[in-house]
Amino acid sequence: MTELKPQIASCNCGEVHEDELYERLKIIVQSQRTIPGALIPVLQTTQNLFGYLPEKALRIISKELKKPYSEVAGVVGFYSYFSTTPKGKYTIRVCLGTACYVRGGQDVLKALQKELNIGIGGTTPDKKFSLEVGRCFGACGLAPVVMVGDQTFQRVKPTGVSEILNSFE
């Protein structure tokens, strides 16, 4: 059996034409459609590809994996990781799991909201950052943890958030 791994698409900068992304999606889905439990990895790959989960992509996934659309939507809605609205270039995830929460994750989140002037689930007008809340990244010893894209920042203080943001182009 083929090993299931979410495939990281190299680019979601918007330079690739949408049609090309759908072509890629079809190839990915078709390669995985006989594998049990393929839905979540396929959704992850799709989100990497498009930056979010467009309805058209979810319809294709439902059809190709022979899963009811209601089930696909149920899985998308269950995991906060998945988003059906377009995201900024970088997604910031502030962990509010127990350890991060008690060590000040909430204050870090507030600082980010203030700095970016957006709420949870929001995206900055320049489409650079989106802000999300995470539920434990499994790095409790580093609490409070913030992820920006695939980079992890540990023991973040509210006063340190602008420095982090400035390090992203």
Binding site: K67, P68, Y69, S70, E71, V72, A73, G74, G77, F78, T84
Partner: peptide, 28 residues
């Protein structure tokens, strides 16, 4: 084997229904 209904969302907000709060007439 129809699949109109599924658990949507999580926790107190969760609902059993069609995808993305659609009405039944919008789905199979």
């Amino acid at each position: 084997g129809v699949g109109s209904l599924f658990a949507q969302g999580r926790g107190f907000e969760s609902k059993i229904g069609p995808a993305f709060d659609q009405h039944l007439d919008g789905v199979v």
